[in-house]
Design a binder for these strands. Sequence first.
DNA 1: GTCTATGTTTGCGG
DNA 2: TCCGCAAACATAGA
Length: 282
Amino acid sequence: MPELPEVQTIVNDLNSAGLTGCRIIGARVFWPRTIAEPSPGAFCRRIKGKQFTAIDRRGKYLVFPVDDGATLLIHLRMSGHLNLVRTNTPRTKHEHVVIRFADGRQLRFHDPRKFGRLQLVADPAIILNRLGPEPLSSGFTASVLASRLKKRRRLLKPLLLDQTFIAGLGNIYVDEALWEARLHPCRQACGLAAPEIKALHRAIRRVLKRGLKNLGTSLGTGKANFYSVSRRRGRNSDQLNVFRRAGLACPRCQSPIERIIVGQRGTHLCTKCQRVVPGLPR
DNA sequence: GTCTATGTTTGCGG
DNA sequence: TCCGCAAACATAGA
């Protein structure tokens, strides 16, 4: 669920809360598998007495450099949330890891589906360098995208979801970007014409910036939905043009949005605006 | 009550 | 290289 705009919103919230520089007085783990490395016991011992020197993001990872040189990486996967609460707040059912700070606050990792992971590593680059370019960085130009697309024969949808191709996109923003760029999710990456690549580049950046401006996308009322720190909702769902809108009118041409499966993922598109073979009727 | 789908990532087999 | 599938889980919605 949390994609780049949602993760960045959480990072911003944690920074506003002034979490960097707070002394960590201890940690507790209630679901061991949530700690990918080291062991839960070692994790608690090593983080105790330290502090975060910054809070950052790379792709969908939250990145917390620790003052002893290690780095805490958090990946929220499907249903992870972070709650920042006072010490005396009762622990809720799905809060699997609690990090206690000297100022009486706690950062709690809440994750009903238990897919999310925390890892404390010596060298985060080993993990983060695998990721593709940051789509909102200045280095991510249309020509960078073009040269990467040219080398790949895969379909656009699964390729854009591949974090080693481009970092931070998930199902929501890929569908939105492809609609915005008028590209069918089943187009082959190496088959795009130059103007189409430019349109895709613009669309990716536009939908991510819009998501960020709206503090992320929160859908419905479900518990497995995106909330920023301490359950604050984003309002980007109002801005979605196709995602979870099957049967509703395409905002551009009024024909109904369809939902198909591409690469085993639910995919939303307008088959009138987004043609597999451009120029030809579907 | 039962069944299905789910916004992520990884690893496997073909 | 690329694809499909399963697994890690809980919950919402039909």
